[in-house]
Design a protein around this nucleic acid. Structure first.
Length: 115
RNA sequence: AGAGCAAGCUGAACGACCGCGGGCACAGGGCGAAAGCCCGUGCAUGAGGAAAGUCCGGGCUCCGCAGGGCAAGGAUAACGGGUAACGCCCGCCAGGGGUGACCCUCGGACAAGUGCAACAGAAAUAGACUGCCGCAGCUUGCUGCGGUGAUGGUGGAAAGGUGGGGUAAGAGCCCACCCGUCGCGUGGAGACACGUGGACGCUGUAAACUCUAUCCGGAGCAACACCGUGGUAUGGGGACAUACAGGCCGGCCCGGCCGUCCCCAGGAGGUGGCUUGAGCCUGUCGGCAACGACAGGCCUAGAUAGAUGGUCGUUUUCAAUGACAGAACCCGGCUUACAGGCUUACUCUUCAU
RNA sequence: UGGGAUGUAGUGUAAUGGUAACACACCGGACUUUGACUCCGAUAUAGUGGGUUCGAGUCCCGCCAUCCCAG
């Protein structure tokens, strides 16, 4: 994963939570906001409430993989934060992926030819 | 064969496609004066036995070592050894449990002092309710005084235990045996064991205060060092002032500081620290063992919003859609969690030879 | 990373190592034509597992959960 495409600072996350548009599904919540760049920047939030370190790592890796494999279908130029909810711990991969695409569709992030 | 006990090991393997971290290489591409940076390609490599909890002990770094002393506080606790050190490990002793292999025990001192021991019981560390005995009195079966812990019920614990002698009745008052403490002798490295019978017979509790012995300066990799930004606060240095009181430096004493002026440092971000170490593997030797010595070989994550994932196939399996679980400066332990599997030694019962 | 605290009826709090107390709530009963008030009664694995002690909510140790503080 390209380092420049990840959100790292706490201030970036706070700005998205406060001013970004959001879409919720049973497994995750997606925030997004235009960033005036040529590419997308992604951030992931997996709370300590979801479980111990092994569980949190697995959830974050699956979310990252979903974003990576669906990158060609997304519009560019947005900051996005994916927040995992409690049900995503035991969710099958296919349902998580469908949930992510559903949230992107609600926010209008999918390219027209793929939507 | 069944049941059990102890120690140790393991914690799926292989393959395909798409991806990730750091490392090395490149006569590849881009930027740059260069150092180098970015992209690309290739190669090998990339979480645990507990990485966990953060309960002990150390390494390392800084502060303090003009700060010192005392007090306080904390930790440990049979004995011998191992270790860098430990509250850890090994061996052994004592006590307890089990037919046995074996297992369990925060195991110094209550015979220095203080405290506590509810309820019950006459009485809780020392006083006489029922009894027994003696003396005195008189109403002749009661009263008073005294002796007695042997008897009765209580209690976790009742004044060493059992038997005999003795006595008015009794009592280690005396005797025999037993138990314990101290002393002596023998064995042992020691705790201790055995013997002896000279002295003694003392409630329990120190995970109650306390005493004894030993150890402990403080903080932590967000330490710390360097580059860099640089306005206040704040910190450091120098000069001047420094009578009393008060405050601060974790308690007390000595000691230091407090105010003004000048100079310097001082909010982003980055690099190092960062993995070669009390290291791992194999063999020989010493030791009952923990462990140690020697020889040979090996280099085995180093991230910084944090790298192992996704989709499948094959094999082993009752089960592989995985038990407990993710390095964050590094080691030695402890504690706790854990699906399943394997190995070795030993014990008991039954059967066969 | 370091330090500290707490866990007791459904809830909020007490108790010197010796019968777990109080208030509110809930439940049952009494009173009332009925309800409220009032009165009576009932309700506790003491977070969990061990240990010390004659005896543990209290003392000691391990674990679990929650909360707080500093960077």
């Amino acid at each position: 994963m390209n380092v420049r495409r990840t959100l790292k600072k706490n201030s970036d996350f706070r700005r998205l939570y406060a001013r970004g548009k959001s879409a919720a599904t049973p497994y995750l919540v997606l925030y997004c906001r235009p960033n005036r760049r040529a590419e997308n920047r992604l951030g992931y939030t997996v709370s300590v409430k979801l479980g111990h370190a092994v569980v949190r790592n697995r959830v974050r890796r699956r979310l990252r993989e979903i974003v990576r494999l669906n990158e060609p279908a997304l519009k560019q130029g947005f900051d996005m934060v994916v927040v995992a909810r409690g049900r995503s711990v035991n969710a099958p991969y296919r349902k998580l992926e469908a949930s992510f695409l559903d949230a992107c569709g609600k926010l209008g992030l999918l390219r027209e030819e793929n939507a």
